[in-house]
């Protein structure tokens, strides 16, 4: 439970802290969420994401761009946040399943998990954006999805790197087929 609380705080930090890379500020929100999918159990992943969304919903500026509030959640881009809520536990669950099903291929399991997270978030986000702003599905894809595809792919790949390093340090759920972690 406390792990989930701290993880939610981490997502908030990731979303607030925009790293000045290039002209557009880049937030680490999706990266931290992906690491959560990779390291926590489905239940914990859900709790952490739900807590993050709740923090934002009661008006704390923890969503990207230091915004917050039910307004954002109900607004045009709220679908992405709801997508995280559904996607994080689903991703963690799939990561665990694939890991059991194909032992010895932890990377494959990780990729499947984070892809599901991103896919669910994009799916809900896209539908919501198109519905709320009244623009067509194609226009919504153009402004809401297309510009983020590549950066998000890079961030998610970064998340896998971080999660692996963290696993080597003994964090997160045990992975089938991964080298045994020496106990401290």
């Amino acid at each position: 439970m406390l792990r989930a609380a701290l993880a939610a705080a981490l997502v908030s930090v990731g979303a607030i802290v925009s790293v000045p890379i290039g002209p557009v500020p880049v937030t680490l929100q999706i990266l931290v969420l992906a690491v959560i999918v990779l390291l926590l159990s489905p239940g914990e992943a859900f709790a952490a994401t739900a807590l993050y969304v709740a923090l934002g919903a009661i008006g704390l500026p923890v969503f990207s761009g230091a915004s917050g509030g039910v307004g954002v959640l109900l607004g045009p881009t709220g679908g992405f946040l709801l997508g995280f809520l559904a996607g994080a536990p689903a991703g963690a669950w799939v990561r665990r399943r694939v890991g059991l099903w194909l032992p010895g291929r932890p990377t494959l399991a990780d990729v499947a998990g984070v892809c599901l997270l991103v896919a669910i978030s994009y799916g809900l986000g896209w539908a919501r954006l198109a519905a709320v702003t009244g623009m067509g599905a194609t226009a919504a894809f153009g402004v809401g999805i297309a510009p983020f595809l590549l950066p998000d792919a890079v961030k998610v790949a970064g998340a896998i790197v971080v999660a692996r390093a963290a696993r080597r340090a003994g964090l997160g759920e045990p992975v089938e087929g991964a080298p045994a972690i020496p106990s401290a």
Binding site: L2, R3, L6, V19, I21, G158, A165
Partner: peptide
Amino acid sequence: NVITRFRAILPVLTPLFMSAFRHA
């Protein structure tokens, strides 16, 4: 460039996660 800077950020996140879990 963007990629180099992004790669520089990753090693920051691992200890950050460690410390968050330790705090918990």
